[in-house]
């Protein structure tokens, strides 16, 4: 086998292994999808009435869903770190490292399985969104691109989380540490409220926050904006898809090599 084919085949074996866990522990997927449903309902009905400044003709449900999508899948990516830390703790990484398998396969298999989980939670959230009034007002092609942009960004974040998991080595710590970073990152953004309401410093941060770009890209591609809405000031939000892709490439370029190297040096207990 050529080394690329071998890496792929190893990665498939590991992805399968990770997905079997989802099958055996269905609670995982239930809870992973319950919280986004809860978010959709809470924001739609609790805050929805109080949030002003929406683009004319756009309902809060339409404004909200792309934001919830982005927040949930970025949070979903932390699974990668927690699972890697768990594998380290249980000595499984030692076992894998003692096998003549591709160095990157454990991480590729992990991130791909988590991509699958994120795809499932997007479907669940989307269906919930349709129930509470969210609609896609664009072409099928644009809508598919919208979902791809979301998943691609989440996939890149998974690689960052993989490194966190390798360094931190305790699943609980991965979860707690990433919440501290991910909550501000997903809230100081256009996720739940329009940026116009932010104080100026926060607003600049939010405009250049990649999460805002991901959300903006999804809104544009799902047709959840209005032609009457003002053009955003920041370049990042005028070209949200491009800006998101730049972040995706940057994150992958930095964290894929770092994580693979970290895996090669990782010691179990």
């Amino acid at each position: 086998m050529s080394s690329l084919a071998a890496t792929l085949s190893d990665s498939v074996v590991i992805t399968k292994r990770n997905l079997i866990k989802v099958k055996r522990v269905p609670d995982l997927i239930v809870f992973a999808t319950l919280s986004p449903i809860m978010f959709v309902l809470l924001f739609r009905y609790v805050f929805g009435g109080a949030i002003g400044g929406l683009p004319p003709g756009v309902s809060y449900a339409e404004f909200l869903l792309p934001g919830i999508f982005a927040q949930t899948i970025v949070l979903g990516s932390t699974t990668t770190g927690a699972s890697i830390a768990e594998d380290l703790q249980k000595g499984l990484i030692d076992r894998f490292r003692s096998l003549p398998m591709a160095r990157s396969a454990v991480l590729v298999g992990r991130t791909v399985a988590d991509l699958g989980l994120n795809a499932i939670s997007i479907v669940v959230m989307g269906l919930t969104g349709l129930v509470v009034g969210w609609r896609i007002n664009s072409s099928v092609g644009e809508a598919v691109t919208g979902f791809l942009v979301l998943l691609l960004f989440a996939y890149a974040v998974s690689w960052l989380m993989a490194l966190v998991g390798l360094l931190v080595r305790t699943p609980e710590v991965v979860n707690n540490a990433s919440f501290i970073v991910i909550f501000p990152l997903t809230f100081v953004a256009n996720t739940f409220v329009p940026l116009e309401s932010f104080p100026s410093v926060l607003r600049t941060f939010a405009e250049w926050n990649p999460v805002s770009a991901v959300v903006q890209a999804a809104r544009d591609l799902f047709g959840n904006t209005s032609p009457l809405a003002p053009v955003p000031d920041a370049w990042s939000l005028q070209h949200p898809v491009l800006y998101t892709l730049i972040w995706v490439v940057l994150i992958l370029a930095v964290f894929v090599p770092l994580s693979v190297r970290g895996y090669g040096r990782a010691a179990g207990r």
């Binding site: 292994r17 055996r24 249980k90 499984l92 096998l99 003549p100 396969a105």
Partner: peptide, 20 residues
Amino acid sequence: AVDEYLTGFENLEMVGRLYR
């Protein structure tokens, strides 16, 4: 170092596959 969620058979099959 066994994967708790995999069956005994699946664990061994996985390792065999990774030994190519």
